[in-house]
Write a protein that binds this DNA or RNA. Sequence first.
DNA 1: AGTAAAGTTAAGCCTTTGCTTAACTATATT
DNA 2: AATATAGTTAAGCAAAGGCTTAACTTTACT
Lengths: 108, 108
Amino acid sequence: MLNDPSPLDRAFAALSDPVRRGMLARLSLGPASVSELAKPLPISLPAVMQHLRALETSGLVASQKKGRVRTVRLEGRALSEAESWLSRRRQEWEARLDRFEDHLSEIK
Amino acid sequence: MLNDPSPLDRAFAALSDPVRRGMLARLSLGPASVSELAKPLPISLPAVMQHLRALETSGLVASQKKGRVRTVRLEGRALSEAESWLSRRRQEWEARLDRFEDHLSEIK
DNA sequence: AGTAAAGTTAAGCCTTTGCTTAACTATATT
DNA sequence: AATATAGTTAAGCAAAGGCTTAACTTTACT
């Protein structure tokens, strides 16, 4: 990922870490503070911050600070875009399989 | 990713690279040889091999060698599993939004 | 005012990733 | 048999990733 990764690059990279996927799973149930996200994790707070930054620069998550607590929420948009990429590839792949089966039945 | 990444970890990691996503896009249209995959890419063959290995150990792709040409094909299964993970998260997220809107209309 | 709570930043360390070139193996072609 | 084709392995390097501890800032509580 040498030169300026695209949003999709970042989103999939963010998704590749189980800690971050865990955070997303938590956030899919509703917003949470940084410490709420950190609580179940066996890593230091600064490590959590870094994961959070990965999620945020990928667009999968957004946050705002009020007083001393930062509230993080899931961003459905980026999630959908990653999903769509996969969905398109799967659809092309299935379409090709269908054509292949048609071909088989023709020569039968 | 210190300890033995899960298949899902590997799949998303594989998807995070635009070169590999390009290969998958090509393969979604049908199988291809290593050199066919390499042709449009501005990188060396060994580099392509490494990308291929990332795709293969993630389960997104499988290959077999016949004579001197290795034919690579997409594996729909791994693709679907990544897609499903995202889909579940999006569904939970949407369900929560719906409950939230219901709540709003109740107090109105 | 003094202390606790919630984040944040910086520095350093080790591993993993993505790439290269060079050298090599195994099939096809002529 | 000689040469070309298709892929593979190995070594090495620079950058990115994931973690830590230490030090600091900004609110909130007593």
